[in-house]
Structures are given as C-alpha cells and as structure tokens.
C-alpha cells in the first residue's frame, strides 16, 4: 500500500517536471523559431536571443531532471520509452546540441554570414524538438507494439501516424505562440508589435488545430479517452482562448500565466488518459507498462522523494529570483549573445 502511494505520487511528480519543462523550455523554442521571422537585422535578432539569454540554460535542466527522475523512479518506463523513440530522441539530441552551441558561437565572429547560419541553427534546433515531443507523447497514448520483454518491436516510420503528427503540430504551434507572448513581455516598440502579430496568428492557429485534435483524438485515442482527460482538454482549449484574448488586449503577462495553466491542463490530460499505464502495448494489454510494474522499489522512491521535496522549492526560489532580476524590458544597449 505504501509502495502504491509513492508510485502514484511519482506519476504526479513526473507530470510536474514535464509541466515545468514544457512551460519554460517551451517559450525558448518559440522565441527561437520566431527569430528569423521577427528579427530583421543583427540588432533585432540579438534582442530576440537576449530575451531568453539568462534563462534558457536553467530551463533546459528541467528536461535533464525529468529524464533523471524518470530513470530513478520508473526505470522500466525510462528504458522502454527511450529505446522506443531511439531515432526521434537522436534527432532531438542533435537539435539540442546545435542549439546550445549556436547560442555561444553565433556572436563570436562578426561576419554576417556566420551569424545567419547560427541563427538558422537556433531555429532548426528549436523546431525539431518542439515538433517531436508532441509526436512522442501522443504515440505513447496511442499504444505501440511492445513485446513481453517490454521492448518496442516497430520502426521509426510506425511513429508517424496522422494523429501523432497532428499532436506534434499542435505542440509546435503552441510553443511558437508561447514564445511570442514571452517576447511581448520582454520587448518594446517595433519588436513588440511584431511579436504581438506573430502571437495572434500562431495563437489562432493553435486553437483551431487543438480543437481539431480534440475531436480527432476522440477516435484516434478512443481507447484512452476518459472524463478527466477530456475535461482537462476542454479547459485547455478555453484557457488558450482566454490567453489569446489577453494578447489582443495587450496583457502578455497575464496571457503568459494562462499558458502556464494551459500547459498544466495539457500535461494533466495526457497523464489522466494514461493512468495507471505509462507505456501501452498495442499487441496485448498484458505487455503494458504501468506505474506498478515499471517503478523502483520503495527505498529508492522514498530517497528520491525526500531529495525532491527538499530541493524543488529551493530550485523554484532561486530560479524565481533569477527571473525577477532579469525579467525587465530589453532596451538593447548591452547585449551578450
């Protein structure tokens, strides 16, 4: 019984880590995808990059932590998930490497060609993961050919079904919108206007595609649909509309908070639809991985729980302080990247 409580607790905590990751790294992706479209000339581009400058490294650790915590608490889930999505994860890794070094390398030479190339690296390095996370997570929802040793027996192209690609696109559109909202908070003047325009366009598209996905998902993921998940998805759609209205009214700060709630309900929908499964086998439900057969033992779970309960609030505190210190408008007088 005690073990089950910790297994459920960690199912929720993994969701929390992914909420943190998608909310924070999500706007990083969006800002950099918008970079080539919004930033005309080197100065504007650097302001766009600078907007996430002090934060992106801290944001990326949410992924590292989610991965580490998944490994520690549900090794079975981690092993099956990561080996299943071998090539998508390889692409994500390549993209993230490209992104990390592009940040540091782009400003090192003043040659415009050099900088344009790395800007493209920032763009591509954000576009690929922004698209693929949705594809990966929807595949888990749909169910995959998993054998009795919990190994995936399909190939790469089995992952690219219409429903999963559509989920990927909704995720991508949302991240771009989220980045646009973030840029509105950080910029002034011309860039602000352009960010607002981009946010309105991508926000509208996100809502349209999200609504299509909810209806399409009723069929494509029919086996997984339950009331809580559906409720979360509907709230998510409403929150997106509220967020977009706030953007139109010129209140990006509040819209940003709506997006946090949106990510919360989006991730919650997924976890509610999966519970108590974590990887679903399309061959036989006997091969499903659940929080009960994929978790670590009690000792291990208690240790990680104690560490997390102590450290996570501290992390939120100093990351919050970092945001408070650097969150003002960028005037573009002194730029790092």
């Amino acid at each position: 019984m005690v073990l089950e409580i910790f297994q459920v607790l960690w199912f929720i905590l993994i969701a929390v880590l992914f909420i943190g990751f998608f909310f924070l790294e999500g706007y990083d992706y969006g800002v950099l995808i918008l970079l080539p479209f919004l930033g005309k000339g080197d100065r504007e581009r650097r302001i766009v990059i600078e907007s996430i400058g002090p934060f992106w490294e801290g944001n990326e650790v949410w992924l590292v932590t989610a991965g580490g915590a998944l490994f520690a608490t549900f090794p079975g889930w981690y092993a099956t998930m990561f080996s299943t999505f071998y090539l998508p994860l390889f692409l994500i890794l390549v993209a993230l490497i490209l992104r990390v070094v592009a940040f540091e390398f782009r400003g090192k030479l003043s040659n415009p060609k050099w900088r344009t190339r790395w800007d493209f690296g920032l763009f591509l390095g954000s576009l690929i993961p922004a698209l693929l996370w949705g594809v990966a997570f929807s595949n888990m929802l749909k169910g995959l050919p998993i054998d009795s040793n919990f190994n995936y027996t399909g190939g790469f192209f089995n992952l690219l079904t219409p429903a999963c690609l559509l989920t990927g696109i909704v995720g991508l559109l949302f991240f771009i919108y989220h980045g646009g909202v973030f840029l509105m908070i950080r910029t002034v003047g011309d860039l602000y206007d352009k960010s607002k325009k981009a946010a309105i366009i991508t926000g509208g598209l996100t809502i349209i595609f999200a609504v299509i996905l909810v209806f399409y998902g009723l069929f494509a993921f029919s086996a997984r649909v339950n009331l809580i998940a559906l409720g979360c998805a509907v709230i998510l759609a409403l929150l997106l509309i509220a967020s977009l209205v706030l953007v139109v009214l010129g209140r990006p700060g509040l819209a940003f908070l709506m997006n946090l709630l949106g990510v919360f309900f989006g991730v919650a929908a997924w976890f509610a639809a999966m519970f108590p499964n974590v990887m679903i086998s399309s061959t036989t439900s006997a091969n499903n991985l659940t929080i009960f057969n994929a978790s670590s033992n009690l000792h291990s779970l208690i240790v990680i729980t104690i560490v997390t309960v102590i450290l996570l609030p501290i992390i939120l505190l100093y990351q919050g302080w970092c945001y408070k210190t650097f969150m003002g408008k960028i005037t573009g007088e002194k730029l790092h990247y």
Binding site: G58, V61, T65, G68, T73, F74, P75, V303, I304, V307
Partner: peptide, 29 residues
Amino acid sequence: SRFVGDIFGAPLAVEALLAFFIESTFIGV
C-alpha cells in the same frame, strides 16, 4: 537501465536537482 534503474537512476536525478540546476541557473546570472 531496467536492471540497475532502481539504483543507478537515483544519483543521476540527485545530480540534476542538487547540482546541475544551480550550475545552469547561476551561469546565466
């Protein structure tokens, strides 16, 4: 990973929570 996840994952998770978060946040600072 399945074989040792019970043990091996814990230090990796602690590393991220205890060290890597500080490192990456404060390098930006």
